[in-house]
Design a protein around this nucleic acid. Structure first.
Lengths: 157, 157
DNA sequence: GTCGCTGCAAAGTCTTTGCAGAGAG
DNA sequence: CTCTCTGCAAAGACTTTGCAGCGAC
């Protein structure tokens, strides 16, 4: 059909880098670097899943049993990270937003409507067309999100 | 850039047709055709906006002052229509789902992050690529949704 | 020390549900 | 007539917020 590249899953940013960006962001805004904020960032980084605030909170409680972290702090930190474009959120049909680190390479999502599994991909041709469309509509494009829904290989059986 | 067609806004289904489909759907499921359900469908049809349950409810209260319609009925009817694929919902960053009639021709959305304005479009090439990607991932594609975010012409001033 | 951060619990939103009377088929 | 719908209000689910003590800088 074409010789355009479609790439799947390519985690490019190292945690060190990410953490430094986060610290810089906090410093720039006279905000404080706390253990809770670090743990939230780290847990997001280590998860390949797209996390809801609640699942993120659970993960933290499991992995950092000696640290008390309130759900409110998770919400507050996610809001902070989203405002700073360090994480992006996806909203799905049913309910609840899911968050993922935005610092990973840009990608779109293929979502299994049976099991909820999310596969990421990037397609150059689509990216190009999106810019062209925004231009032709007179929009100054800042971002986009695309989800393809279907039934994954496993669930087809 | 290419000779692929990009179409903007093309309402194709007549209300009569839509209403008949709805009645058939109800009949098939031993559900009843009520004035509230008709009013909700009609209001959706007549609106070019993407409506939240609340704004839909307000519209109905304004336009049908002699009819009492509870917000619960709006929610219940939207759920019914969505289950039957007669409307689709969009979830945006902030909160709340917005609904639109799905029977209109398929299209994607360009959303102004300043004023919230939504412009619809269809791009053949993107549609094709989406199918190709689903195939290559082994997904049986059922649907997709794409949103481009940016700042519209008006808001750039 | 200061001032932002956190956990908790209370308060908000938005959505769903139970129920008794109303209404479609 | 029967059985689904509806409006209402109460209940739920998910988020946000106020506050007093804690902790980063």
């Amino acid at each position: 059909m074409s010789n355009i590249t479609t790439n799947f899953k390519d985690k490019t940013i190292e945690y060190e880098q990410l953490l430094n960006d986060f610290k810089a962001l906090l410093k720039d805004n006279s905000l404080k670097f706390t253990i809770q904020r670090e743990v939230i960032l780290e847990t997001l980084y280590n998860s390949d899943e797209h996390l809801t605030p609640e699942s993120l909170h659970h993960l933290i409680q499991e992995n950092f049993t000696d640290l008390k972290t309130g759900i409110a702090t998770v919400y507050r930190t996610l809001a902070l990270l989203e405002d700073s474009n360090m994480v992006t959120s996806l909203s799905f049909g049913a309910q609840g937003k899911k968050y993922e680190l935005g610092a990973k390479e840009h990608h779109d999502h293929m979502i299994c409507t049976e099991c909820g599994k999310i596969t990421e991909f990037v397609d150059e041709e689509i990216e190009k067309r999106q810019h062209a469309i925004a231009d032709s509509l007179g929009f100054k494009m800042s971002d986009h999100s695309m989800q393809i829904y279907g039934i994954c290989k496993n669930c087809q059986n």
